[in-house]
């Protein structure tokens, strides 16, 4: 999927860039990123015949960090690029479900439904009870920082097994 800009990308790019700085410079340059308290990763089916690598981290501030990468971007993201973004883990106690969400800011994709506009993508995954099976979508919207409205295309279907988030070892 596409290389993209936005808040999510900083989580992954900034640490690499800061590698050349001293500890003091690093501390002055950016606040400490919240640490992950639990994580899970796996590979899901994307639109039935393709795949998507996914990593989720529950951060100590309660937010959820998500990274996804798919060999095929379906004209709403560049093929093979990594997307990262922040969202939430929501316990749906009344229905014994869990919702994982994230927002990604994507770049324009030539020949895609959004033309020269950037593509905003939303991740939504639902787990029923304590099952490993999750299902949901990666839904593209045309425009920067726009995660609702008429999707740019039919939501991309995601299914597969993803373990429950566990404390990192």
């Amino acid at each position: 999927m596409s290389a993209r800009r936005g808040a999510g990308v900083a989580l992954f790019v900034i640490p690499a860039l800061l590698g050349a700085c001293s500890e003091e410079e690093r501390a002055a340059a950016a606040p400490a990123a919240p640490a992950a308290v639990a994580s899970a990763s796996g590979t899901l089916d994307l639109e039935l015949r393709d795949s998507l690598e996914i990593g989720l981290e529950l951060l100590e501030d309660g937010s959820l960090r998500a990274r996804v990468r798919a060999p095929r971007g379906f004209a709403v993201a560049a093929d093979g690029a990594e997307l990262s973004g922040v969202g939430r883990l929501v316990e749906l106690r009344e229905s014994e479900g869990t919702l994982y969400t994230a927002r990604f800011s994507g770049a324009p994709v030539g020949g895609g439904p959004c033309g020269a506009e950037p593509v905003s993508l939303a991740l939504s995954l639902h787990r029923r009870g304590d099952n490993a099976f999750v299902a949901g979508s990666l839904t593209p919207y045309c425009g920067a920082d726009r995660w609702h409205g008429r999707p740019a295309r039919t939501p991309l279907r995601l299914t597969g097994e993803l373990p429950a988030l566990a404390a990192p070892r």
Binding site: L99, A135, R157
Partner: peptide, 17 residues
């Protein structure tokens, strides 16, 4: 089946947000 699940989760996400 996945069409139904995909649309429902996205509706759920927008509501949750």
């Amino acid at each position: 089946m996945e069409y139904g699940l995909a649309h429902a989760t996205e509706a759920l996400r927008i509501a949750s947000d």
